[in-house]
Design a protein around this nucleic acid. Sequence first.
DNA 1: TTGCAAATGCAACAGTATTGCAAATAATTC
DNA 2: GAATTATTTGCAATACTGTTGCATTTGCAA
Lengths: 138, 138
Amino acid sequence: MELKELIKRHNLRPTSNRLEVLKFYRKAGKAVSHGELDAELGEQFDRITLYRTLKAFEDAGILHKVYDEKGIVRYSMCSHDCDNTQHQDNHIHFHCTSCEATFCIENVEIPQVQIPQNLIVESRYMVINGTCNNCKRA
Amino acid sequence: MELKELIKRHNLRPTSNRLEVLKFYRKAGKAVSHGELDAELGEQFDRITLYRTLKAFEDAGILHKVYDEKGIVRYSMCSHDCDNTQHQDNHIHFHCTSCEATFCIENVEIPQVQIPQNLIVESRYMVINGTCNNCKRA
DNA sequence: TTGCAAATGCAACAGTATTGCAAATAATTC
DNA sequence: GAATTATTTGCAATACTGTTGCATTTGCAA
Ligand SMILES: [Mn+2]
Ligand SMILES: [Mn+2]
Ligand SMILES: [Zn+2]
Ligand SMILES: [Zn+2]
């Protein structure tokens, strides 16, 4: 199994819990909240364990946090070379206001902006709200 | 008092609670969370009333919500012609990672971006993290 | 296979926010 | 100005999200 390798490469133990969680995230193809994860795997694993799994994956650079405009926390697979020392997820996120799906726009960097005051920029975060492909035709 | 007028123009009753809250927001010059508001006015007004005041001001177009990258909810004065039908707060927000202050960059619009998929864009949200003027020299 | 470190489950707790309802207050009508 | 009506407020209860402590289980390496 490839997921096991991915977990090991990030210095975590590939437990059944972690394998199932990661399988779910990979399959989802979008950002998933703890609540949605719990709805899927809550019978099998404890609510708190799922919280800790998400935290562990985030720290390890396997998942990254995604916020929509209402502050809802979701997680999504890291694509590149994130690890426990650094995340590299500075891409745009899209949030569908119809179905509430949120996902990464991997290949679009967040544009730089000229801000007038003498402020030091460290990072940028950007969410685009709109209608996704599925909801458009419906 | 000018604040009274502002509240009335948005079809709300200018109670002492609302006047004090609005005075605080105007003075603050930055985004303020419910907790910070409660720390200032909690002796005088009920915690829940403050929640409802913020909600009422938001619905009326007097305040708008601001989220930082950690999902913390703050509110800030609306500058333009927001009302109960529409908000017009599509500017960038700046969050200082040192002092946690968050404020509006009123005069900088959020840049448009070309997203590849056929997604319908409705609005954009952007937060810049960095170091503010005060913290820079410290 | 034994020993140790990491991971899990359960219980308790913390922080933030919402809802129902009765009392208080503001605006409107007389 | 007093009576009537609608809005606002305070308090209690509740919900939701997330964290922490601790005993038990599991994975891994010696
Ligand atoms: Mn992403
Ligand atoms: Mn703003
Ligand atoms: Zn959608
Ligand atoms: Zn600062």
